[in-house]
């Protein structure tokens, strides 16, 4: 890092101050009292001015301590879909053994659009506060500057500081609803014959109901016990295996990708084996978390050739 880059980084991270609405009134009052005191030499006005200046000093010292001692990292959710809020978190902790940090607000400045506020971070402790991240595009998204700010202690000035938390987050395409066979899925073709698992009628397990499951497959006793609709899978039933084919030449390729994404997520959550045909890339039908990630990553990183 050159000295210029370092200097630019430091200037970005410098603590800045902006008066709040009450702060502007306060400053106006200070100016008025200063003029009055200097004009008249009235010592009671000097006393008022001294009181106001002491408030100003205390405000600045405490606020400076508050922000300087704050450290931050973000905790991104495991999966991010564009245009969809995902519950992540910020972890704030205090470097100081003495003072607690008070009223820290966190805000993403570049991407992510997350905001959070922590009322108190105990001395040398840390606090995790949930934050909703939302991205407007798929692929690798850079999370950059985060602004931490606080109006502590008197609410007269907003003190803020920008922190570079460079990080790249992989954002999957948006999940478009539309049923099991809607959109891109309609272009999908069953590639393999259904396979049988286990003996006929043998109970394989239960899974949560997802949109598109036939109502008759809901196992009501299990649903009542668990508290949400559950579908029972039995041996002998078809474990469908199929491939989602995305028309990469379509002018609305992003829509195609979004529908494919929704289809894949839904199908995999139903336990189906699913593959993907995305331009030249072909992923054979499988199931499981690793496969799901592979499929979604392919969708997220897809780039149409020229």
């Amino acid at each position: 890092m050159t000295w210029r880059e370092r200097w630019a980084l430091q200037s970005r991270q410098r603590v800045r101050v902006r008066p709040t609405r009450e702060g502007w009134w306060f400053l106006l009052l200070v100016v008025g009292v200063t003029l009055g005191a200097f004009n008249t030499g009235n010592n009671l006005l000097y006393l008022c001015l001294s009181a106001l200046l002491s408030l100003l000093v205390i405000q600045n010292v405490l606020a400076e301590w508050n922000l300087r001692a704050a450290r931050l990292r973000r905790r991104l959710p495991g999966e991010l879909f564009s245009f969809e809020q995902a519950e992540g978190a910020y972890v704030l902790w205090s470097l100081r053994p003495g003072p607690a940090l008070v009223g820290i607000q966190v805000e993403e400045l570049d991407e992510g659009g997350a905001q959070a506020e922590v009322s108190v971070v105990p001395p040398t402790g840390e606090v995790e506060v949930p934050a909703a991240f939302t991205f407007g595009g798929r692929g690798w998204q850079r999370l950059g500057r985060v602004r931490i700010s606080s109006t502590w202690p008197f609410g007269l000035f907003l003190r803020y500081r920008e922190i570079d938390l460079d990080e790249a987050a992989l954002v999957y395409p948006a999940r478009r609803p539309g049923g099991a066979r809607a959109g891109g899925a309609e272009r999908g073709a069953e590639e393999e014959t259904p396979r049988r698992r286990g003996g006929a009628g043998e109970l394989l397990g239960a899974r949560p109901y997802v949109e598109g499951d036939p109502i008759r497959s809901v196992h009501w006793p299990t649903s009542a016990r668990v508290g949400r609709p559950m579908v029972v899978e039995r041996a002998g039933e078809e474990a469908r295996s199929w491939v989602v084919r995305v028309d990469v030449q379509s002018p609305q390729v992003e829509d195609e990708l979004a529908r494919a994404c929704g289809q894949i997520v839904t199908a995999l959550s139903r336990g189906e084996r699913i593959g993907l045909e995305l331009g030249d890339e072909r992923l054979s039908p499988q199931h499981g978390g690793v496969h799901r990630r592979r499929l979604l990553t392919a969708l997220a990183l897809f780039e149409r050739g020229l």
Partner: peptide, 17 residues
């Protein structure tokens, strides 16, 4: 701090008004 400011602020009697 108020005491410090009060005692150390230079007294100016400008009498502009």
């Amino acid at each position: 701090l108020t005491a410090a400011f009060f005692l150390l602020l230079p007294r100016i009697d400008a009498e502009l008004l």
